Simulated assay, not measured.
Amino acid sequence: MNEQKLFTKNFILVVIGQIISLFGNSILRFALPLYLLRTTGSAALFGIVTACSFLPMIFLSLVGGVLADRFNKRNIMVILDFITALVVIFLLLALNKLSIVPLFIIILMILYGISGIYHPTVQASIPSLVSSKKILSAGAIINQIGALSNLLGPIIGGMLFGTFGIIPILTISIICFTLSAIMEIFIHIPYKKRNDNQNMIAIVKNDLSESINYMKNEKPILIKIIVLISLFSLVLTAMMIVGIPVLIIDILNLSDSLLGVSQSILALGGLCGGILTAVLGEKLTLPIITFKYLHWYHGNTATT
């Protein structure tokens, strides 16, 4: 790519589209579980629905990268944003008409599944939009947009939900996803169709197999990192996603706005973590972190 500047026309459109789409996504992901918890008052149902909603995201996140490599990335983003808008429109029309638990399970599974494809597609489009020297900067901008949306979305969503209820949030989300899809139509992402004779299932299977073999043979450290992150997400992240809303809403009987503030504080921690990683990344290698932790652990156990 000949263009050396970071903010090209196409990258600017992607950034603006991400700001709009991720903002709508953030307030929606905050408001829907909160509405379910407020309506049913059941922490068990809240946990079940939340767990079910993440299942398609886990699978489709693996497939999302493969699809982004094989199909036009711009078209994938446009189609997914339009589908998301249609899904939220359906929810708006079906609310108070269908049983809330199965309705929310289906809707959240679709939304999280779409997210599992959408985000890898955006990340995969970056090398085609900016020069090789600007890829890291462009990726950092996209990631920070996501972090900021997670920071501001719950605060705004909590204020809107506490004051006006779920309907305005659904309406705002529909507008956001529609605007984002329309804007993405004008993005030009270079695309060259591959001549694959295999069906999609075989393609996905082969690509995932190649990725696993690469990690096993070339970058085994990636497997350790994936396992560590998976365990962290399985235990601690799940506790925060389900436990904090139940604690604030059901046990402490606090307001929706305060729940939004608490969720934003968690997002702020992630944002600060990303900044610290960028600043201290060269000093904090995995062996050093492991050694310091073991040294700290043995020192503390020796004194107890």
Rank of each mutant, 00 (worst) to 15 (best):
A124F: 01
L13S: 06
V66H: 05
Q198E: 14
I182C: 11
I83Y: 01
P154L: 14
I289Q: 00
F59H: 05
V78T: 12
G17D: 07
I174L: 08
I114A: 06
R74Y: 03
T40I: 03
V204K: 03
I58Y: 09
A238D: 01
F104Q: 03
G273R: 13
M240E: 04
V14F: 01
G113Y: 01
H295P: 01
S61A: 09
R194T: 15
I27Y: 00
T277H: 10
A147W: 15
T277Y: 14
D207F: 05
F11I: 04
S53C: 01
I221N: 07
I117M: 11
V246C: 08
Y297A: 08
I275A: 13
P245H: 07
A302H: 13
F177I: 11
M240P: 00
L67W: 05
F11M: 03
L222Y: 15
L252K: 12
V130T: 09
D256S: 14
F164Y: 15
T163A: 12
K219G: 01
C52T: 04
V15N: 01
L129P: 02
I201G: 06
L62T: 04
S125Y: 02
L32C: 02
S233T: 10
I142M: 11
S230L: 07
D256I: 08
Y35N: 06
P220I: 15
L92C: 02
T171C: 13
G41S: 02
L286K: 10
V246K: 09
F90L: 13
I229T: 11
S125L: 00
E282S: 14
I187S: 03
L271K: 08
M239I: 11
I189L: 12
Q123L: 13
F11A: 03
I248S: 05
K97N: 14
Y35V: 05
T40A: 05
E218V: 15
L236I: 15
T163H: 09
I117H: 04
I114G: 00
K283I: 13
T285N: 13
L22W: 08
M239P: 03
